[in-house]
Amino acid sequence: MDIKKVNEKGNTLEIKNLVIHYVSEDEVVKAVNGVDITIASGKTLGLVGETGAGKTTTALSILNLVPDPQGKIISGEVLLEGKNVLTMSDSELEELRGDKVAMIFQDPMTSLNPVLTVGDQIAEGLEIHRKISKGEALKQAKEMLELVGIPAERAGEYPYQFSGGMKQRVVIAIALACSPDLLIADEPTTALDVTIQAQVLILINDLKQKYHMSMLMITHDLGIVAEVCDEVSIVYAGRILEHGTLEDIFDNMRHPYTKGLFGALPDIEVRRTELKPIKGLMPDPTNLPSGCPFHPRCDYAMEVCSKLPPETKWLSDTHCVECHLYKDTNESML
């Protein structure tokens, strides 16, 4: 494993105050509204939130792949090992994509090209970034296949000859082929059934440790977060409402929204209790509520919540929350 170049803080990824809007003729969809993310080298951050909270858009911005004509990056920086991805030229981006940062897409059924063999698809990244011959790339592709638990002989087969779980393994092999520093996993198990989910998660975890990668895990499944992540950010309407280590979030959750998410989980011990869904729906991203975006659904909403956006409050060195409830709290009170 080559020694990773990291900036002075040792962070693989730093996103600072990222704002992304989707602009169409008659409306502006505010997808991401000031997200800050830091992933230390070798660590895994879980990005948790409902559908439409801006998780995927944030992830795409790391590769500078936000859909072009509509998606506008209004402000912010995405620093990968200290270099701003958003100001890179096309050729710099092509070098970066797949080599330094790789992405596992949500749906393995559509993220593989149906007319190319899986071996070719894994080899493609190697050919581009390692500048090696096709034969050599195919050989390494076969090794990658073995690594994700698929026999190398199957490299010559087409995606339709694989089951969903195996396709996702192929997608993982493609992402890991060039041993990236940062792996973005965009709901990697959403399209798979539960038994395969476990296999794929174990695989991702094993490989992450083997290659000492940093990872951004996007999901709405708190079970997955508990399994693979070191830190968790809770995203709501394009803002991070609470951030902390796994313990901070799972054992000392502070934000009413985080509490709501956990309240909506079934309890395996007490099967007869009713689930407590969070009332209401995600706000319309074209017309976000004033103040705190969560206030219309919040049980603890105060007058100030609808007027002023809450500021980030650090409750400890690792745990921060964006909520008016904790404005005057300090560490000793918790």
Binding site: L96, R97, F105, N113, L116, E124
Partner: peptide, 21 residues
């Protein structure tokens, strides 16, 4: 389709994406 985006995410150039994918 997503595999075109996936190809871009592994660093394929526009020409490679058009011809190969």
């Amino acid at each position: 389709i997503e595999y075109v985006e996936a190809a871009r995410a592994i660093g394929a150039t526009n020409t490679q994406i058009i011809t190969k994918h």
